[in-house]
């Protein structure tokens, strides 16, 4: 399915995104010079600390003023500024196609917006889609000019197949040892469970953000009569006779499911955000993601 770029990001909204940057609550090592402070001490202009000179140190970083005063050799250390690795994991299972507006488009728009913010701030942006299999994947893009490739990737992203979050996260964790910000966009309605997958990501010590997207039809089902519900991922069937009790029970279960996910995330330092697709996309990016600390 090809989605036009404008559907993902319109120019006006892109202008508004220019002012935002991605925040990482943790400081990681970067791979390349960038604009973000790294854990590594390096050659930036910002003084960080002193340490004793040991033989072999670069004499250029000796602080001669201190030597003149104390007659001891000290090496000046400077903060290193490196790039941030921003990864976006997009659930591309068939269930994401559900709803009006559908969750897949909503997820891709979030991914596009966050990618754009990452690119313009010289972060290393990766976008990975998964369903029952891992991929396709867009790895290590930097710079504003790469936005078209990212949008192109997202626009052509198809949502099909059953979701397998555990396998996808495991694969991702293996392939991406580089620490950074990981934004996971999914409905989390995975019959295999979300816990295993999240544990893989948490284990890598990513700065992890979990955004759960649900369609209004999933939150407030408008169903009536005797129905045979077909799971669009695995064609599993559920025969129901819609009653008030059943609907109440469904809502209770959904609420409990979301609360359990939130608790799971909270206990592991994962930032959780629940959003129905009825929430305007602009509002989500400009308000809710900023409130959650992903953007500033």
């Amino acid at each position: 399915m090809t989605t036009r770029y404008n559907e993902l990001l319109d120019p006006e909204f892109m202008n508004r995104l220019e002012r935002l940057d991605i925040v990482s609550r943790k400081i990681y090592f970067g791979r390349m010079k960038g604009e973000r402070r790294s854990k590594r001490k390096g050659q930036s202009v910002e003084f960080a600390d002193y340490r004793n000179y040991v033989s072999g140190d670069d004499l250029r970083f000796l602080d001669w003023n201190i030597y003149a005063r104390l007659e001891r050799l000290f090496i000046k250390l400077f903060f290193e500024e490196e790039d941030l690795h921003v990864s976006i994991l997009v659930d591309a299972s068939a269930s994401m196609r559900y709803g009006n507006p559908d969750k897949a488009l909503y997820a891709r728009r979030i991914a596009a917006a966050v990618s754009y913010i990452g690119l313009i701030n010289y972060n290393r942006v990766s976008v990975t889609a998964y369903s029952d299999r891992y991929g396709p994947e867009l790895v290590g893009f930097r710079g504003r000019h790469m936005i078209h490739q990212v949008l192109d990737f997202l626009a052509n992203l198809d949502s099909a197949g059953a979701g397998n979050m555990a396998a996808a996260c495991r694969r991702y964790a293996i392939r991406h040892p580089q620490k950074g910000v990981v934004l996971l966009l999914s409905d989390f309605l995975d019959k295999g469970g979300y816990e295993t997958g999240l544990r893989y990501l948490v284990g890598r010590n990513y700065d992890l953000y979990a955004v759960q997207l649900l369609a209004p039809e999933e939150i407030e089902p408008k169903l009536a009569g005797d129905l045979q519900l077909r799971d669009i991922e695995d064609n599993d069937l559920a025969e129901i006779t819609v009653t008030r009790a059943l609907l109440n029970r469904y809502k209770q279960n959904l609420n409990a499911y979301c609360l359990a996910l939130r608790d799971f995330c909270a206990r592991r330092g994962v930032t959780y955000l629940f959003t129905p697709t009825t929430v305007p996309f602009n509002q989500l990016v400009l308000t809710y993601l900023r409130q959650r600390g992903l953007l500033k």
Binding site: S95, E218, Q228
Partner: peptide, 22 residues
């Protein structure tokens, strides 16, 4: 068996659980 109307949904996960609960 009742001839039920088929309806595709995102996941039967919560529905099945609701029916079982009831």
């Amino acid at each position: 068996k009742l001839k039920r109307q088929e309806l595709p949904i995102s996941s039967t996960l919560l529905w099945k659980r609701a029916v079982e609960d009831l």
